[in-house]
């Protein structure tokens, strides 16, 4: 993927850039809003990573200007602010996701991946399959190796979120936002307890686990077999 990074702090920029390149992406970097606008207007980027506080042109205005100019590449905002309404402002300005600094690189990478494959999600899928685990979205059933599994509504949403991104890491905060609409980090390890519940239904009694923990990043559903 070709990613545009607009970030004025050189150290953070270097860190993000290095990580993205290691993950196999091409990175263009702009150190201020005007340069970012110039580079992004050229088009051809799959994802934009934009800091909110930028010299010359702030991140919100930058994305607003790009949207007005017809640039549709998904954008993710980075911010050092603890702002409560920043997320809403960012989405209103035409951003697609929002990440508060400091973030683990794995978190950013997971979100960038999620954004980049968003268009494909719109294709109608009625059956999600990972190994011998099947989720039928039409009949609303889950089965593994032919055995029916009963799930609570939130467990269903959690598993669906993971299965739609099979092979890709979903972070704790991504799950909190997508499954429970929690835009803050609870002190209690609620995600862990929900995952372990889901595991006891999906993986218990089977020789191969499908739900994997990625240390320092999050969770992934994949078939290692």
């Amino acid at each position: 993927m070709r990613i545009l990074l607009v970030e004025d702090d050189s150290e953070t920029a270097a860190y993000v850039r290095r990580g993205l390149i290691e993950a196999g992406h091409t990175v263009d970097h702009a150190a201020d809003g005007q340069e970012g606008l110039f580079l992004a207007s050229g088009g051809g980027h799959d994802v934009l990573v934009v800091d909110r506080m930028l010299p010359k042109l702030d991140g919100l205005s930058l994305v607003r200007a790009l949207r007005a100019a017809g640039v549709t590449a998904p954008a993710i905002f980075l911010t050092a602010r603890a702002g409560v309404g920043d997320r809403v402002e960012g989405l209103d300005a035409g951003g697609d996701d929002y990440l508060a600094k400091p973030f683990a690189f794995a978190e950013l990478l997971a979100r960038v991946n999620a954004l980049a494959r968003r268009p494909r999600l719109q294709q109608e899928t009625t059956l999600l399959r990972v190994g011998d685990l099947e989720m039928d979205l039409l009949r609303h059933t889950v089965s593994r190796a032919g055995q029916r599994i009963t799930l609570q509504p939130r467990e269903w949403r959690l598993l669906e979120f993971l299965m739609r991104r099979k092979g890709e890491v979903a972070t704790r905060t991504m799950l909190l936002e997508a499954v429970w609409d929690f835009h803050f980090d609870p002190m209690t390890s609620v995600v862990e307890t929900h995952i372990s519940r889901l595991r006891s239904k999906i993986d218990k009694g089977f020789d191969r686990p499908l739900i994997h923990t990625v240390r320092g990043a999050g969770y992934v559903v994949r078939d290692d077999g």
Binding site: E11, A80, P102, F105
Partner: peptide
């Protein structure tokens, strides 16, 4: 906002370094 920015930025870098070390 300035404090948030000025203090979180160095802390963020510290966190990045630790992640690289790990």
């Amino acid at each position: 906002d300035d404090i948030a920015h000025d203090m979180r930025t160095p802390l963020t870098r510290l966190r990045q370094r630790l992640e690289e070390v790990r």
